[in-house]
Amino acid sequence: MEWKEIMGKEEHSFWGLLGMELISVDKQMVEIGLNADERHLNSMGIVHGGVLSAMMDQSMGTLVAAVKGRLGVTTHLNVQFLSPMHKGVLKVSAFPLHETYRTMTLRAEVRDAEGVLGCISTATFRVPKA
């Protein structure tokens, strides 16, 4: 399954619910955007950590699909929150770190429109047999 086919199904899933938009995809980097609004905020008025985590997980999963040509499942996700993110445009970038036949380890980072680094993540994905 091609990543374009995968992304075509995302509109009606969690991806669509959050309002994420695909910016770019290649085998070295995936970029996803989100225009954070009131629905993405927690009770402190900053973007909820679950939203940021989901953005990073989705970007890394999309990169797995672009590289491997099929979906993988997250087996490990480590997130570090560095700066609060607020309403407005957010962008997540994902990069590969290590690849084997059945796994990929990646990193991702979320930045706001001013380039402030909000959080970083590493994850390992298992790619089931074709």
Rank of each mutant, 00 (worst) to 15 (best):
M1S: 14
M1E: 14
K4N: 12
K4R: 14
E5V: 06
I6E: 15
M7S: 08
M7C: 05
M7R: 07
G8K: 13
H12W: 12
S13T: 13
S13E: 10
S13Y: 12
F14G: 04
W15D: 12
G16N: 07
G16T: 04
G19R: 03
G19F: 04
E21K: 09
I23K: 09
S24F: 01
V25K: 07
V25F: 04
D26F: 02
K27Q: 15
Q28P: 10
Q28E: 15
V30I: 12
V30A: 10
E31D: 05
E31F: 02
I32D: 00
I32P: 07
N35P: 09
A36Y: 05
A36I: 09
D37H: 07
D37M: 06
E38Y: 02
E38F: 03
E38Q: 12
R39S: 12
H40A: 03
H40P: 00
N42F: 12
N42V: 06
H48S: 03
H48G: 06
G49Y: 01
G50A: 07
G50L: 06
V51C: 09
L52K: 06
L52I: 11
S53W: 04
A54G: 13
M55K: 10
M56Q: 04
D57S: 06
Q58V: 09
S59C: 09
M60L: 02
T62M: 15
L63Q: 08
L63T: 06
L63Y: 05
L63W: 00
A65Q: 07
A65Y: 01
A65W: 00
A66V: 01
V67P: 00
V67C: 11
V67G: 03
K68S: 03
K68W: 00
K68I: 00
K68P: 00
G72H: 03
V73A: 14
V73M: 14
T75V: 14
T75Q: 11
L77Q: 05
N78P: 03
N78C: 04
V79M: 15
V79H: 11
L82D: 08
S83W: 05
S83K: 15
M85E: 05
M85W: 01
H86E: 11
K87P: 04
G88H: 00
G88F: 02
V89I: 09
V92R: 10
S93M: 09
S93N: 07
A94C: 03
F95Q: 05
F95S: 07
P96E: 01
L97V: 15
L97N: 05
H98Q: 13
T100V: 06
Y101I: 03
R102I: 08
M104Q: 11
M104H: 06
T105P: 06
T105L: 01
L106V: 05
L106E: 03
L106H: 02
R107Q: 10
R107P: 02
R107L: 06
E109Q: 12
V110S: 14
V110E: 07
V110M: 13
R111C: 08
D112Q: 12
A113K: 14
A113E: 15
A113L: 11
A113R: 15
E114S: 13
E114P: 00
G115Q: 10
G115W: 10
V116T: 15
V116M: 14
L117Y: 01
G118V: 01
G118T: 01
G118K: 01
C119G: 14
C119Y: 07
I120Q: 15
I120H: 04
T122Y: 01
T124L: 00
T124F: 02
R126W: 14
V127N: 11
V127E: 10
P128W: 09
K129Q: 13
K129N: 08
A130W: 08
A130I: 08
